[in-house]
Simulated scan of single mutants.
Amino acid sequence: MGPMTAPRTVETWLTDMDGVLVHEEDAIPGAAELVQALRRSGMGFLVLTNNSIFTPRDLRARLLLSGIDVPESAIWTSALATAQFLLDQRPDGTAYVVGEAGLTTALHDVGYVMTDRDPDYVVLGETRTYSFEAITKAIRLIEGGARFIATNPDPSGPSPAGTLPATGSVAALISTATGRQPYYIGKPNPLMMRSALNRLDAHSETTIMVGDRMDTDIISGLEAGLRTVLVLTGSTQRHQIEQFPYRPSRVVDSVADLVPFVEQSAAGRAEA
């Protein structure tokens, strides 16, 4: 067997949002500079999030308040990935949705009809106002034959007041009642990465995924064939890395450490 070939030139960047670019409403040092460097570089990039509550326009506004200027077109949510998946699977379908504007808007935009009468799918997303009535309706529709989709498996999420139940926790409730497991679209499903690559018309061998969680960002990037960078400003700490049977391609303290690499990659592309 001959020597392994050197990695191909980086052409595209994917980066997680929470724990990588921001903590709640506060920008992580270096995040604004990284996005500026990516925009100057001419390389394709997307900011990914499992959060399905907000539309890309909402998220752009929230990031701007934190001092990070990300174009709306460069934000890819689990809601958008879910809508793309359903469009590919069953165009012009119908869905009963438990979720908020980020999810319902994404589904409307691909031509889906929202209904509680014999829908093709029950689609569960994150919301701050889960109702017993809506969950009961979802359970009965799934029992009646609707296919069960969830935007992401995250069991909980942060808030200024403390932990909040998230999509995975409510999905577990519905699964317990129905005996049916959902198909999760968001990370760690590598489908989320593949849909982002397709959005950019990018190739896995020339793409880097930046994340703060070994069990979502890094594993999904690895399984999609990407090079991965773990930043230590979020969930996974340095001492925890060895607990996992896989490793990121690189570990850095924060996204601030990646700004020179982006600039070097851009210079290399310009010379090529």
Score class of each variant (00 low, 15 high):
residue 160 P to V: 13
residue 92 D to M: 10
residue 79 A to T: 05
residue 2 G to M: 12
residue 87 L to I: 03
residue 37 A to Y: 03
residue 214 M to S: 11
residue 120 D to G: 03
residue 107 L to G: 00
residue 112 Y to D: 06
residue 20 V to P: 06
residue 52 S to I: 06
residue 57 R to L: 13
residue 211 G to K: 04
residue 63 L to K: 06
residue 87 L to P: 02
residue 109 D to N: 13
residue 191 L to E: 08
residue 147 R to D: 01
residue 36 Q to R: 15
residue 214 M to Q: 01
residue 247 R to S: 14
residue 168 G to Q: 14
residue 172 A to L: 05
residue 240 Q to V: 10
residue 170 V to M: 15
residue 121 Y to N: 04
residue 45 F to L: 10
residue 126 E to V: 04
residue 129 T to W: 08
residue 73 S to H: 15
residue 59 L to R: 07
residue 34 L to V: 03
residue 142 I to F: 01
residue 26 D to T: 15
residue 48 L to F: 01
residue 140 R to Y: 02
residue 112 Y to I: 10
residue 76 W to C: 05
residue 207 T to S: 09
residue 118 D to G: 02
residue 128 R to L: 14
residue 128 R to A: 04
residue 171 A to E: 01
residue 164 L to A: 09
residue 93 G to I: 08
residue 183 Y to P: 00
residue 142 I to G: 00
residue 17 M to K: 05
residue 58 D to I: 07
residue 34 L to W: 00
residue 16 D to G: 02
residue 30 G to W: 00
residue 142 I to Q: 01
residue 114 M to F: 10
residue 150 A to S: 02
residue 39 R to K: 12
residue 163 T to I: 15
residue 255 V to L: 08
residue 138 A to L: 09
residue 53 I to L: 13
residue 19 G to D: 00
residue 3 P to K: 13
residue 124 L to Q: 01
residue 166 A to C: 14
residue 4 M to Q: 14
residue 136 T to S: 13
residue 127 T to Q: 05
residue 183 Y to E: 15
residue 91 P to H: 09
residue 103 L to C: 05
residue 55 T to K: 13
residue 66 S to Q: 05
residue 98 V to A: 05
residue 262 V to F: 02
residue 160 P to Y: 14
residue 180 R to N: 12
residue 129 T to L: 12
residue 11 E to I: 07
residue 143 E to L: 08
residue 205 E to R: 08
residue 238 R to L: 14
residue 229 V to D: 09
residue 179 G to P: 05
residue 266 A to E: 08
residue 105 T to M: 07
residue 3 P to G: 12
residue 24 E to S: 15
residue 109 D to A: 09
residue 148 F to H: 04
residue 189 N to T: 03
residue 15 T to S: 04
residue 51 N to Y: 04
residue 223 E to S: 12
residue 74 A to F: 03
residue 59 L to V: 14
residue 190 P to K: 15
residue 264 Q to P: 01
residue 48 L to A: 10
residue 114 M to K: 14
residue 138 A to D: 01
residue 252 V to R: 10
residue 132 F to K: 15
residue 144 G to M: 11
residue 150 A to C: 09
residue 247 R to H: 14
residue 26 D to C: 11
residue 103 L to R: 04
residue 65 L to T: 03
residue 147 R to P: 01
residue 257 D to P: 03
residue 137 K to H: 00
residue 194 R to Q: 13
residue 44 G to T: 02
residue 186 G to S: 13
residue 271 E to G: 10
residue 131 S to I: 05
residue 196 A to P: 04
residue 198 N to D: 15
residue 78 S to F: 01
residue 134 A to N: 07
residue 174 I to W: 07
